[in-house]
């Protein structure tokens, strides 16, 4: 017997290889950004491109994520159907987490805060690599911790 009742239904199912492919592109771009460094204009442009990609995936949805579009247009036709589909919420949430790091990295570049730039882009790279290599969603894991903390602080404020 199974009780799936309280589990939220997904709003859409996607090919899980899409976000993973996207994470690989993201990782390559972020490595490029790191190598170019916090004073390189070329690096800023690459980081801006990735930030826009994160923003599209996070704010508009995965169907608008440019690396996802590349995947569906050029890669998926060569692969055939996926073994199984997955819910779109986790990878979309991961895009939001990526967006936060990318914006922090941009702020580091613009305001000349090299340490902020290195940390933000470095962590965004770790998250993208975990996704690309291990199919592991770091942001999704932090989600429950965030919920616990916000519930805890709300309860603390009420007391």
């Amino acid at each position: 017997m199974s009780e799936p009742t309280s589990v939220p239904a997904s709003s859409g199912l996607i090919d899980p290889r899409g976000p993973r492919f996207g994470a690989a592109i993201t990782a390559v771009l972020l490595i490029t950004v790191l190598i170019l460094g916090p004073t390189s204009l070329a690096g800023l442009i690459v980081l801006l491109v990735q930030t826009v990609a994160f923003a599209a995936g996070s704010l508009l949805g995965l169907q608008a994520q440019p690396w996802g579009l590349v995947y569906r247009r050029f890669v998926r036709p060569r692969l055939g159907a996926p073994a199984e589909l997955e819910a779109s919420e986790p990878p979309r949430f991961a895009q939001s987490v990526g967006l936060v790091f990318a914006v922090a990295g941009l702020a580091g570049w613009i305001f000349g805060l090299a340490v902020l730039f290195w940390i933000a882009v470095g962590f965004a790279l770790v998250a993208a690599l975990l996704n690309a290599i291990f199919d592991f969603c770091l942001g999704c894991e932090l989600y429950l911790l965030g919920k616990r903390l916000s519930a805890g602080s709300a309860a603390g404020a009420a007391n």
């Binding site: 490595i31 290599i133 592991f136």
Partner: peptide, 18 residues
């Protein structure tokens, strides 16, 4: 050069954690 080291550190951290 710093960027290369940070990229390598990120990769090492990923492999260890994953």
């Amino acid at each position: 050069m710093t960027g290369v080291w940070i990229a390598l550190a990120a990769l090492a951290l990923t492999l260890a954690f994953g």
